[in-house]
């Protein structure tokens, strides 16, 4: 078991290195000269050369890469071309916002997915309607869901807010509004934040929820067909005992890895949806960065979200090994 975990951790490190190397290469070969971007178009040649030497841009490529890696380890994500500030300072406010959105989206996606899977096992009409909603929603681009959501729930019904994370300003210690509000005992603020969260989280959850639902449904069905489920029934266990001990555990294994993988789609959806809901997170920041060719910012965002994705998936892999002893040897 320890060896299994060690092997997973090793591959985690390798994948993270590949991601950083890719981003480093892209940054190095981007069409924009970072020195000029920082000093501006009118800077003189001597100043450019001086800064170039100071930033280590004259060093061989591998030296630059190690500098870059070393910087990352110390939290140095580069300097934004736009704000002329370290990217890490800009991101401090945005990362918790996007993470909160992503986690809320994942929770909704799993709930919807599980419901979807269970409805496929029944023939009732209203459930078919629910399935139709998820099926159509998953074929729609995230931005359409956002736009329609605003029109319906904000403009027409007036139930939900259409922009921002909360009606109040300011932030608490963690910058996760839900956690901060709980820490501060601010009940109204907590529900206000949830109120703001529902619509954007729902928009990014629908696509992944269908994937989760489909896989869980087929996994449930095939697990129910296994001989050992029949054995469990033959022992005279009750339905809930059979499902609880012999079906759910074995059927959830593929779903678990899928949840990890869907985080990638979830983050991409968040980048889009934040623009519609003026959600002050990485997506909004990313759009600005793309418009201004702010490469350090783009690469930092990709790195943070990518690393999150990779970490979660490594954790899921290890968790699966704990659930299913057969996977440990592979």
């Amino acid at each position: 078991m320890l060896k299994f975990i060690a092997r997973r951790l090793l591959s985690l490190v390798i994948i993270l290195l590949v991601l950083t190397f890719l981003l480093f290469l892209m940054q190095t070969y981007s069409p924009i000269d970072p020195v000029r971007a920082i000093l501006g178009e009118k800077a003189n040649a001597a100043a450019l050369a001086a800064l170039r030497a100071k930033m280590g841009l004259d060093d061989p490529l591998y030296v630059q890469y190690f500098h870059y890696l070393g910087g990352l380890l110390h939290g140095d994500l580069g300097v934004s071309y736009r704000s002329r500030q370290p990217v890490i300072d800009d991101l401090k406010a945005f990362v918790p916002a996007t993470l909160e959105l992503g986690i809320a989206g994942m929770v909704i996606a799993v709930i919807l997915g599980v419901i979807f899977a269970l409805t496929t096992l029944s023939r009732s009409k209203p459930l078919a309607l629910f399935r139709g909603f998820i099926l159509t929603g998953a074929a729609a681009p995230t931005f359409l869901l956002g736009v329609l959501g605003v029109i319906l729930f904000y403009k027409t019904l007036g139930w939900l807010p259409a922009s921002g994370r909360s009606s109040e300003s300011g932030h608490g210690p963690t910058r996760f509004l839900l956690i901060d509000d709980i820490l501060a005992g601010n009940i109204t603020g907590f529900f206000d934040a949830i109120h703001h969260l529902i619509l954007p989280a729902l928009c990014i959850a629908i696509g992944p929820s269908l994937v989760i639902g489909r896989v869980f449904a087929s996994s449930l069905r095939s697990t129910l067909d296994y001989d050992y489920v029949r054995t469990a029934q033959a022992k005279g266990l009750t339905g809930s005992q059979v499902v609880g001990r012999h079906v759910i555990r074995n059927a959830s294994s593929p779903v678990l890895s899928l949840v990890g993988l869907q985080i990638g789609a979830m983050f991409a959806g968040a980048l889009v949806v934040e623009n519609i809901f003026s959600w002050p997170g990485l997506g909004l920041y990313m759009s600005g960065a793309i418009g201004a060719s702010d490469f350090p910012a783009i690469s930092a965002i990709t790195l943070i979200l990518g690393a999150g994705y990779i970490l979660v998936n490594a954790a899921v892999d290890i968790l699966q090994g704990v659930i299913d002893p057969r996977l440990r040897v592979a």
Binding site: Y226, D227, Y228, R230, T231, A232, A234, G236, R245, H246, R249, N250, I323, D324, P325, R326
Partner: peptide
């Protein structure tokens, strides 16, 4: 009142238990 033995003990036993 019943006991049962199936053909393939590999698939008839839960692999994760």
């Amino acid at each position: 009142s019943l006991g049962v033995i199936f053909q393939d003990p590999m698939t008839s036993l839960n692999p994760t238990m």
